[in-house]
Design a protein around this nucleic acid. Structure first.
Lengths: 145, 145
DNA sequence: AAAAAAAAGTTAGCTAGCTAATTATAATAT
DNA sequence: ATATTATAATTAGCTAGCTAACTTTTTTTT
């Protein structure tokens, strides 16, 4: 068996395809490929700190800084210093950003629906269980083992 | 339900973790994060053209060109023009590259084993079936739909 | 109160991915 | 035979991700 045909390779393929579909659907909204998750997170909870956003998205603060600079430039978000703690910068959606996040939400749902077409609810549940177990297996693995 | 907690988000998380484990295990081999799949592919079939490699890995030729330039510089591969067709460049593993690909293969197997610890064979089979269906759902989706 | 440590962001410099445009070679059509 | 078209690879310029080093502000120690 060729190593490229393993399960994780297949997962990578699926996710790449998934992302490109989302990208296609929001092409007209000044939203770049990595931004949808950020927009959804902000649409759920506005005014998060960059630290919270980075943790939530599983991305390094340095990465986030640059992405937010771009999103500020394209007018999707604005940033303001926290009043209590001057180290903290909080991130807010603009009106444009709110519109974009709605479009993203819709696109996401559409792609998700397509992706799981023909799945029974219990199959999706099973898939979730598999993924959670994989996640757990990998996160509890420390180099000393 | 928050959109970030959907299945594809979970998959992304798992894959990121997976990759970082592989990276950690091959840290001493001059192999960068995106290169393991390439090395495995070449270890299976040496002397592929860049086009074939790109298609096999699901990456654009432009992306591959730059990766191969780096791998040539670090001595993992060498490239030579095809004799029959001067447009084609074929890629070969060097001795160093062969050693690295062995390390990658071992690391991959180790991570894969950890990742699927506690899985029954039929569960892995089921997961594969799910992923293939997802892949099919997304690849047969054309914008006109 | 002053010094040390910790935390939040930023910057610089790298790899990996993309698209669009370009070059060189090969295949096809006229 | 020549002109056109197609294919392989590269280059340039972008976004997204990382680490390491740095600055500023807050918190902890002493």
């Amino acid at each position: 068996m060729r190593s490229e045909s393993n399960l994780t390779h297949l997962m990578r393929h699926v996710l790449k395809n998934h992302r490109s579909h989302v990208d296609r659907l929001i092409r007209d909204y000044d939203v770049y490929p990595g931004q949808p998750p950020l927009l959804l997170r902000l649409s759920d909870t506005d005014g998060l700190s960059q630290r919270e956003l980075a943790d939530s998205k599983g991305v390094k603060p340095a990465t986030l800084t640059v992405m937010l600079q771009r999103m500020e430039k394209t007018g999707l978000i604005r940033r303001a210093a926290d009043e209590k703690d001057q180290r903290v910068t909080r991130v807010y959606l603009t009106e444009k950003g709110r519109g974009a996040s709605e479009a993203v939400k819709q696109a996401m749902e559409e792609v998700e629906a397509r992706c799981f077409e023909g799945f029974l609810p219990e199959e999706k549940l099973l898939l979730r269980r598999f993924l959670l177990q994989m996640k757990d297996n990998l996160t509890t693995w420390t180099p000393e083992d």
